[in-house]
Design a protein around this nucleic acid. Structure first.
Length: 574
RNA sequence: GCGCCCGUAGCUCAGCUGGAUAGAGCGCGGGACUUCUAAUCCUGAGGCCGCUGGUUCGAGUCCAGCCGGGCGCGCCA
């Protein structure tokens, strides 16, 4: 299905081609900057194009002259009521009511599929998100990245990309050794030892059942054994259990990723990726300069194996090997992204926490180098969430293990609320999450506000049904101008999908749904002042049928948007 | 010192990737309920879009330089 805006973009392209053919415009113009949009001020019409202004300079003509010629062509289209030139050279189109009635029919036919786009043309895109270290359950620090990444993946899939959702398991560093040692303590505890958790090990209770599982499996075999005998074994077992925990947490949010890629599975792939870079002469042994500023007093110049990241826009070259000869985390990540390239992805998206912002350039440099510049890595930075309870900050201390887990939050306020709220801001700005506010039933809670609109739509449908009304096929010509205005708003959904997918900003959906809900609530309230303007008019089945069709159409768009966000539309609210 | 992100109404934030008179919610002033059609809606006041230059027919949006805030800065992950 082509969207209304695409159809008019084609009409405009046709008209421009006709003008070129007639010699009214020079050939070979670049029309890529031509847009078709709803004007900000609805009194200007239904659609607006900047074609004349964009083409004026390359064509060597006055914008208004181009606009006039274009207006003449477009005014001949049967669906166009008026085509007017305005301002510096805008061309405003007003469409016949039938065009909006048709669009509502299209919504009713497509239902929640309305808005699906072919923009992505099936391009394979990899979206990597969460990638939390497998050292414990997910807490609120991970939650936002999980939701934003998942919604972004859904959004891009809806926009026609072939999306793979991926999780990178950091199971090869020192943190998982620490995890294994912490589990060993709990293992001894399970076997009756009195333990004290030293500084630097993970204190969380979630390791208690892990210790019990290890005790059940191994008995007292490793209680007094030296670390070398149990470390690898305990690490493997514990990481597997932690990943079960994490998958369960993700499931609570409705997230199911396609690929879980373990750092530990890279093996020789690290060397292979680095060989690729070496073949391009991008690896060398060298000494980095000390960073300026404070906190680097203990700097000692040291020869290292380095990647020429600075050739690709990074600030410095980057180390690939530690002084003990093992790979750095970066080297593994280079190999991992090399693996993604070899799987055929042409677009990569990574979601990073804000504290990893400094890591973006080197990763992009690596992808640029490995792909020869043909693959783009887009990194979305996800900022912190601050938790509040009725305005009071919630204290969290990771050291004592008393952090707020994702599971706790989902249990308290529900998956849909968590997901929606996480998408109510641009991902790169800080977000405040107040347990009291997010469940409040009021205008300033966007989750409620949007859900309430959807519930109201369901409510009137039920009302017509329980009133025993027999509704005819809707005659959409019965809808008045204000009602068609709501269709106009709903018809923007396909544009919103494409804009949000192109910019990779899923929060735009939440804002759009809020606006759509507001438009619906506003229409609904007309019925308070004037009962004849209610949606359900019990003694007028024809009018009711038309108005319910409108409501249903809006409901489909809300449900479609919520589906992309991973939120269930509410049937009713209590 | 360098890099990245951010400065928009009193507060919290949008601003459709350069368009027409900069928007919304909260808060403040005024109004509309026999409610599963008031958990809502209508209306009013409130802005040197941090500052200064530049690019452009046109800048909150792009560029440069300042000012202010956050994050990061050789082997951690």
């Amino acid at each position: 299905m082509t969207s209304l805006y695409h159809r008019y973009a084609l009409h405009i392209a046709d008209a421009l081609a006709a003008l070129v053919a007639a010699g009214d415009l020079p050939p070979g113009l670049d029309t890529s900057a031509v847009t078709v949009e709803p004007p900000r001020d609805p009194t200007h019409g239904d659609l607006s194009t900047n074609a004349a202004m964009v083409l004026a300079k390359p064509a060597g003509m006055k914008p208004r002259d181009i606009a006039m010629a274009l207006a003449q062509k477009l005014a001949r289209l049967p669906e166009v009521e008026t085509a007017e030139v305005a301002g510096p050279g805008f061309l405003n189109l007003r469409l016949r009511a039938g065009e909006w009635q048709d669009e509502l029919r299209a919504i009713l036919t497509a239902k929640t599929e309305y808005g699906r786009s072919t923009m992505g043309a099936g391009r394979p895109v990899n979206v990597e998100y969460v990638s939390a270290n497998p050292t414990g359950p997910m807490h609120m620090g991970h939650c936002r990245g999980a939701v934003v990444g998942d919604a972004l993946a859904s959004l891009m899939a809806f926009a026609g990309f072939a999306v793979t959702r991926e999780y990178y398991i950091n199971d090869a560093g020192g943190q998982v050794d620490t995890l294994a040692r912490s589990a060993h303590l709990r293992y001894r505890e399970a076997l009756g030892a009195t333990i004290e958790i030293p500084e630097g090990l993970y204190p969380g209770d979630y390791l208690v059942p892990v210790g019990q599982a290890l005790a059940a499996e191994f008995g007292d075999t490793y209680v007094a054994a030296p670390e070398t005998e149990w470390l690898v074994l305990f690490r493997t077992r514990t990481v597997a259990l932690m990943m079960e925990l994490i998958r369960a947490d993700l499931a609570l949010l409705g997230i199911r990723q396609d690929v879980f890629f373990a750092e530990s599975s890279l093996g020789d792939a690290v060397q292979a990726a680095l060989d690729d870079l070496a073949a391009k002469e991008l690896i060398y042994e060298g000494v980095l300069e000390a960073p300026k500023g404070e906190g680097h007093d203990d700097w000692e110049p040291r020869p290292q194996t380095l990647f020429r990241a600075s050739d690709f826009g990074d600030d410095s070259d980057r180390a690939l090997k530690k002084s003990d000869g093992s790979w750095t985390y970066f080297a593994g990540d280079v190999a991992y992204h090399y693996n993604k390239l070899r799987r055929g992805f042409v677009d990569l998206v990574d979601l990073f926490g804000a504290d990893h912002g400094g890591y973006v350039k080197r990763m992009q440099a690596a992808v640029k180098a490995l792909s020869g510049g043909s693959v783009n890595l887009d990194v979305k930075i996800v900022q912190m969430v601050r938790l509040f309870r009725s305005g009071e900050p919630v204290k969290m201390s990771k050291r004592s293990g008393s952090f707020v887990t994702l599971a706790d939050v989902v249990r308290e306020v529900g998956k849909d609320v968590v997901r929606f709220i996480m998408l109510t801001k641009k991902s790169d700005s800080q977000l405040d999450f107040d347990f009291a506010k997010v469940v409040e039933q009021s205008r300033d809670n966007p989750v409620f506000y949007v859900q309430y609109a959807h519930a109201r739509i369901r409510s009137v449908e039920r009302r017509a049904a329980t009133a025993g009304m027999v509704l005819p096929e809707p005659d959409l010509t019965l809808l008045d101008a204000e009602e068609l205005g709501l269709v106009r708003f709903a018809a923007q959904w396909p544009r919103i999908v494409e804009a949000a997918a192109a910019t990779r900003e899923p929060h735009r959906i939440a804002f759009y749904l809020g606006d759509l809900a507001a438009a619906f609530h506003s229409l609904w309230n007309r019925g308070n002042d004037d009962a004849s303007r209610r949606l359900v008019i019990e003694d007028n089945a024809a009018l009711t049928a038309a108005r319910l069709a409108l409501a249903r159409g809006v409901g489909h768009v809300i449900a479609s948007g919520l589906a992309v966000m991973g939120v269930e539309p509410a049937e009713e609210l209590h």
